[in-house]
Simulated assay, not measured.
Amino acid sequence: MTRRARPYRSVLYVPASNARAMEKVKTLPIDAIIFDLEDAVAPDQKIPARATLATALKEGGYGKRQRIVRINDLSNQWGTADAEAVAQMDCDAVLLPKVESAAQVEALAQITKDLPIWAMMETPLGMLHAAEIAAHNTLEGMVMGTNDLAKELQSRFRADRLPMQAGLGLCLLAAKARGVTIVDGVYNAFKDADGLRAECEQGRDMGFDGKTLIHPAQVAVANESFAPSNDEVELATRQIAAFEEAEAAGTGVAVVDGKIVENLHVVTAREILAKAEAIAALAT
Score class of each variant (00 low, 15 high):
residue 5 A to G: 07
residue 10 S to N: 04
residue 15 P to I: 07
residue 15 P to N: 10
residue 21 A to W: 07
residue 24 K to L: 15
residue 25 V to I: 10
residue 28 L to A: 02
residue 29 P to F: 07
residue 30 I to D: 07
residue 36 D to P: 08
residue 37 L to P: 06
residue 37 L to C: 06
residue 40 A to L: 09
residue 41 V to M: 10
residue 42 A to Q: 14
residue 44 D to F: 09
residue 45 Q to M: 01
residue 46 K to T: 13
residue 46 K to E: 12
residue 49 A to V: 10
residue 52 T to F: 03
residue 56 A to M: 11
residue 57 L to I: 05
residue 60 G to I: 08
residue 61 G to S: 15
residue 62 Y to H: 13
residue 63 G to C: 08
residue 66 Q to A: 10
residue 67 R to L: 15
residue 67 R to S: 11
residue 68 I to Q: 04
residue 71 I to S: 01
residue 73 D to W: 00
residue 73 D to R: 01
residue 74 L to R: 02
residue 75 S to C: 09
residue 78 W to N: 07
residue 79 G to V: 04
residue 79 G to L: 02
residue 81 A to H: 11
residue 86 V to F: 13
residue 86 V to D: 13
residue 86 V to S: 13
residue 89 M to G: 11
residue 90 D to N: 03
residue 98 K to N: 05
residue 98 K to A: 05
residue 99 V to R: 04
residue 99 V to I: 11
residue 105 V to A: 15
residue 109 A to H: 14
residue 109 A to S: 14
residue 111 I to W: 08
residue 118 W to H: 13
residue 122 E to P: 07
residue 123 T to C: 02
residue 125 L to K: 01
residue 129 H to G: 08
residue 132 E to L: 00
residue 133 I to G: 11
residue 134 A to C: 12
residue 138 T to V: 04
residue 139 L to T: 10
residue 142 M to G: 02
residue 143 V to H: 07
residue 145 G to Q: 11
residue 148 D to C: 07
residue 150 A to V: 06
residue 151 K to I: 07
residue 151 K to M: 11
residue 151 K to P: 00
residue 152 E to H: 15
residue 153 L to H: 04
residue 155 S to R: 13
residue 158 R to Q: 11
residue 159 A to C: 00
residue 160 D to S: 14
residue 160 D to R: 12
residue 161 R to T: 09
residue 162 L to W: 12
residue 163 P to H: 01
residue 164 M to P: 10
residue 167 G to I: 03
residue 169 G to V: 00
residue 169 G to H: 03
residue 170 L to H: 01
residue 170 L to V: 00
residue 170 L to K: 02
residue 172 L to E: 03
residue 174 A to N: 12
residue 177 A to Q: 06
residue 178 R to E: 12
residue 178 R to Y: 04
residue 181 T to G: 02
residue 181 T to Q: 10
residue 182 I to A: 08
residue 184 D to F: 09
residue 184 D to M: 09
residue 184 D to L: 08
residue 188 N to W: 03
residue 200 C to A: 07
residue 200 C to V: 06
residue 200 C to I: 05
residue 200 C to H: 07
residue 201 E to K: 09
residue 201 E to G: 02
residue 204 R to E: 02
residue 206 M to V: 07
residue 207 G to V: 06
residue 209 D to S: 02
residue 213 L to S: 01
residue 215 H to I: 12
residue 215 H to A: 14
residue 217 A to Y: 03
residue 218 Q to G: 07
residue 219 V to M: 00
residue 219 V to Q: 01
residue 220 A to H: 10
residue 226 F to W: 12
residue 230 N to K: 05
residue 230 N to L: 04
residue 230 N to M: 03
residue 234 E to I: 11
residue 235 L to K: 08
residue 239 Q to S: 13
residue 239 Q to N: 13
residue 242 A to K: 00
residue 243 F to V: 14
residue 244 E to W: 00
residue 246 A to N: 03
residue 249 A to T: 06
residue 249 A to C: 05
residue 252 G to D: 02
residue 257 D to G: 08
residue 260 I to K: 01
residue 265 H to Q: 07
residue 269 A to I: 06
residue 273 L to C: 08
residue 274 A to M: 14
residue 276 A to R: 13
residue 279 I to L: 14
residue 279 I to V: 13
residue 282 L to Y: 15
residue 282 L to E: 15
residue 284 T to H: 14
